Lab assay of single mutants.
Amino acid sequence: MIVFVRFNSSHGFPVEVDSDTSIFQLKEVVAKRQGVPADQLRVIFAGKELRNDWTVQNCDLDQQSIVHIVQRPWRKGQEMNATGGDDPRNAAGGCEREPQSLTRVDLSSSVLPGDSVGLAVILHTDSRKDSPPAGSPAGRSIYNSFYVYCKGPCQRVQPGKLRVQCSTCRQATLTLTQGPSCWDDVLIPNRMSGECQSPHCPGTSAEFFFKCGAHPTSDKETSVALHLIATNSRNITCITCTDVRSPVLVFQCNSRHVICLDCFHLYCVTRLNDRQFVHDPQLGYSLPCVAGCPNSLIKELHHFRILGEEQYNRYQQYGAEECVLQMGGVLCPRPGCGAGLLPEPDQRKVTCEGGNGLGCGFAFCRECKEAYHEGECSAVFEASGTTTQAYRVDERAAEQARWEAASKETIKKTTKPCPRCHVPVEKNGGCMHMKCPQPQCRLEWCWNCGCEWNRVCMGDHWFDV
């Protein structure tokens, strides 16, 4: 396979590697080409510095992935760790964990309700045991953590790749202090920090972006993250068709209702045909949960890209028209025109101005929308079919299609509260000796007794199943 190397943020060049090629071997190839010592090179990928003893497969490097290699003399205490030698983080029983690669970060837990604080980093599902597709590297999971809308060759929703760059020099040479644990960490600028490894760059702020994971991409090709779309790892039924499908869209209502993408497309087109989208002054033209839940309008309007190009163009047109109407304007009634106009409040005669090729020149009556006339309008008909009709959803289907309910059931079956801080902690095999993952707590306690870890627990039921 081919990976592209950008040395000291210059133009990239291809390097041929195998899945079992080590990072140090990659350094040696680059060092020979650039005429520099291999031990002064640092390989940066997806916000993480890659260790010498890791392989291309370990690092989730795919065909035509772009890695950054910078030349920086080692500072005291760094060289041993980078070589894969006596790194205290690798000691058996050590409590410190390697910062998780962005290629394996899962933010789907952050669609849980606000009262489930902490689960994004504490609760991990076991539903990723799908067998890898044919042709994928051994052991590589097909679980997708992110979804994007690819405006490039795909023109559809695709699995996405999370990447990070330095907000100062805009190069992907920043190593994160810690990985993101929720969508806010990724979507809110300057929320996460790190250290830029580019020479002479003092940058410390992280800037995240997404790429389409279905095809090789260049540095400049980015895609918009659709953070309401998630892999259906909890096997929730769709609120409309009641099938279990994946991926799904999880509405931001209190129940976190789930809808499959085909039904979401149908829901949007139906509402669009009836012009029953909601115009929100802050958000724009949007839709609420299909069950009509309060405070559930979709905030990231790129989710409506699921409509496809033709329907999305209609959505944008109707949204612009609705904006004009909300501002007190009118639409030209001549067939084939429909231009938005903003006449004076007491102006009865409205002319669709033909300047700049935008208007048709038609003069019409503001009251009856017919060709302009003197005197009273002959008839004014009330528009028919403008009443909002509820999208029919079966109550039982709505009850079963809740992301929140599956989460709470998982928590109930696989977790116990920490005796000190009461945060839910998952036990997935292993011994009875637990350690609270909350940095402010870190209590060592017994899963069996529910009390602080002691010699009695150690001698009596340390390794009970």
Rank of each mutant, 00 (worst) to 15 (best):
F24C: 08
G319Q: 08
T177N: 13
R97D: 12
D394K: 06
I188H: 09
K48D: 02
R256N: 09
V117Q: 15
D219Q: 08
E310F: 11
F381L: 10
A120F: 04
K299R: 11
H68M: 03
E300F: 05
Q400T: 13
S255H: 08
F364P: 02
S384A: 12
C352A: 02
Q282Y: 09
S22G: 03
E376W: 07
G152M: 10
V43E: 01
R305T: 09
G354Q: 08
D243R: 12
L358S: 15
L174Q: 03
N90K: 12
P14Y: 03
N232E: 01
L162G: 02
V36N: 00
N454A: 06
M327Q: 14
R314K: 04
V250K: 05
G84E: 12
P153S: 12
V36G: 01
R334L: 07
H11L: 04
M434C: 05
A406R: 13
R245C: 11
P189H: 05
Q276G: 13
E374L: 08
C289H: 00
T103W: 06
V117E: 15
S218F: 10
G355S: 14
V250E: 00
S384F: 10
S378L: 08
S110N: 11
R104W: 07
Q155E: 09
Q25G: 07
P14K: 05
V456E: 15
S108I: 06
I236G: 02
R305F: 06
L112H: 12
P180E: 01
Q197G: 10
V248R: 00
Y312S: 04
C201V: 00
L297R: 03
K220N: 11
L176C: 07
V423T: 15
S101Y: 08
G319E: 12
L26Q: 00
A31C: 03
V17P: 01
S193M: 09
C451L: 15
L162C: 07
L50M: 05
A138M: 13
P247L: 05
C436G: 01
I66C: 11
A225I: 08
G152P: 01
P180M: 02
K48P: 00
T21H: 05
A91F: 11
Q57P: 04
L226F: 04
K211F: 12
G429F: 15
W453T: 01
C431G: 10
L301C: 07
Q171V: 07
G213S: 12
E96V: 10
S22I: 03
T386Y: 13
K427E: 06
